[in-house]
Computed example of a mutant assay.
Amino acid sequence: MTEPSLMFPGRFNGPPGSANGGYACGVIAGHVPADLVEVTLLHPPPLDTALLVEETGPVYEVRPAGGDVVAVAKPVDEPVEVLPPVLDIPVDAEGAVTDANHPFRSCFTCGPDREPGDGLRIFVKRLPGQSILADLWTPDESLADDDGAVRPEIVWAALDCPGGWAAFNRIPGGVAVLGRMTARIDRVPYVGEQCVVVATSDWRDGRKIGAHSALYTADGEPLAAARAVWIDSTV
């Protein structure tokens, strides 16, 4: 069975010429009828290209008409681990890890060249004495539906790059790209609601690097959490 086409608009880029991995995974997950969905990216998700979602046995394949499979999605049962909240990001935390040698400066989620109100501008920081990265994020109205609720794929995007920067810490000077992501959303935030994003990386196996991220309100209410596998592209 083939679903109607989906498309990743150019605004939501990650690396130049391709979609932000978390945003793409979130859009794809929205086409899978399950509470918890794992999305594996096989190729960089193309921008401004009509893609078909086709149910093939237990998985859903995403591809352009007549083209190669870009991503595979499937329902999963394994719970997503939730990181503890960080309610206070100290002002003396080290500078954002995204400041130096950013490989994708126009990235929708973490690109420093994106203007406020255009990109998410989530610049995670190292917290002293912890293996956690964190930053504040307040969604703007362009990311929400008519009721002011942030669209789920934007939440996926907000969870994506913080985990990526945690993975980058395991490859100093190197670059990794998102390979697989699973996210659970308990509640989407609303426009103007201050949130805290936290992330860490807890394992590496060859080129694969594991990461976890979570989204909370400023008061510590859990909103969403994700696990991801990043691929070291410098090896």
Rank of each mutant, 00 (worst) to 15 (best):
T2P: 10
E3N: 10
G10A: 15
N13H: 13
P16S: 12
G17N: 08
A19K: 03
G21Y: 00
G26H: 10
A29R: 10
G30L: 10
P33S: 14
A34K: 05
D35G: 15
L36D: 00
L41Y: 09
L42Y: 08
H43A: 15
T49C: 15
L51T: 01
L52N: 01
E54D: 11
E54I: 00
P58N: 05
P58F: 01
Y60V: 01
V62M: 07
G66A: 06
K74Y: 03
V80R: 12
P85W: 10
P85G: 04
V86F: 07
L87S: 07
L87I: 09
I89T: 08
I89R: 03
P90G: 05
A93H: 14
E94M: 03
T98N: 03
H102V: 01
P103N: 01
R105Y: 03
T109R: 04
R114F: 03
G117P: 06
G119Q: 08
L120H: 02
P128G: 00
G129W: 10
L133Q: 08
D135K: 00
D135H: 08
T138I: 09
P139H: 05
D140G: 07
D145I: 14
G148M: 13
G148Q: 10
A149Q: 13
V155Y: 02
V155D: 07
G163M: 11
G163F: 03
F168T: 11
V175K: 07
G179P: 10
I185R: 11
I185W: 09
Y190A: 11
G192K: 08
V196T: 14
V197N: 01
A199V: 13
A199K: 01
W203E: 11
I209A: 01
G210C: 07
H212S: 12
L215S: 11
Y216M: 02
Y216D: 12
G220V: 00
G220Y: 14
L223G: 06
A224M: 04
A224Y: 06
A225N: 10
A228N: 06
W230M: 06
I231E: 00
D232L: 04
